[in-house]
Design a protein around this nucleic acid. Sequence first.
DNA 1: TTGATCGGAGATCATTATAGTCTCCGATCG
DNA 2: CGATCGGAGACTATAATGATCTCCGATCAA
Lengths: 156, 156
Amino acid sequence: MLKISKKTDYALMALQHIASVQFGDITPGRVVNTKEIAEEYNIPLELLAKVLQLLSKNGLIESHNGPKGGYLLARSARQITIAQILESIEGPLGITDCSHEKEGEFCMQREHCNIRTPLLKVQDSIYQLLNNMTLGDMLGGTPLITIQSPSTQGVE
Amino acid sequence: MLKISKKTDYALMALQHIASVQFGDITPGRVVNTKEIAEEYNIPLELLAKVLQLLSKNGLIESHNGPKGGYLLARSARQITIAQILESIEGPLGITDCSHEKEGEFCMQREHCNIRTPLLKVQDSIYQLLNNMTLGDMLGGTPLITIQSPSTQGVE
DNA sequence: TTGATCGGAGATCATTATAGTCTCCGATCG
DNA sequence: CGATCGGAGACTATAATGATCTCCGATCAA
């Protein structure tokens, strides 16, 4: 049912938390460590650690080792999109198995497949959607997203 | 990674096939049976049978028993949306576990959850997207969907 | 009226993806 | 030098999905 994984949930919570600390009023610039986030949101510590490592590998956050270490956003919250977060954790967005089929790979249906092309367009639309919403939108505001399609207008 | 299930893939293929037979030039109005679709697209027969039963239960297609039986679209292809097909097979669309949380159910993160509201908006946007594209769009044409978001405009 | 051909329904098994855990390593700072 | 961090890999458990099997009732035509 098009569900995002728990890991991605955790990533979003963590990033939201880091951003709000980093740019908040209390202690701006403070690094945030894994334990702090895990306790705040009841997330299994080791699982969250993996998630944050992935985000770090993908350049969304900066890590600082040693005592008093932790994480910081690598860039502004408005420059981190939901799509980037999701793909950092779950890999490239693909609503079908054949979305990222390599040359020579074919699904059993490929021969007469009649839905591949339209589905790739759906996928592209979802990607646009997720890439047009940022961590910044999640922080403060009410993300405004509108969708226009001529296809079913006037159809009851 | 926001993947739709194989069953839904099969449903889309089958509906596309039924629609093209039903409204095609060759033998319009002919009912289509499960075996025909399964062989055409290399789909496991019994699995496809279940999928078609679900579509029938949800009122997207009509079933006809007995010899020479099979399925017909229950309404025009332009009145069957991708969202309806997807939800017939996979249940209500929900990108998070808490999307359809019943009263009294809480996830472990609920207490300080900072992402529920924005995620529900993302979900709603995806739903709109899928509900604005129809089987008819998949048949003939090039579905035109545009997305507008003010959030990241002007952000480099 | 009877039997072959359909869909309807349920149980069951296999496979895969996800969620979560455990252990050890290297870096850093006091 | 040792406590506190993140980095990394193996590992287990659980849930979702994909697929199969069996039996039933409806229908139509010979």
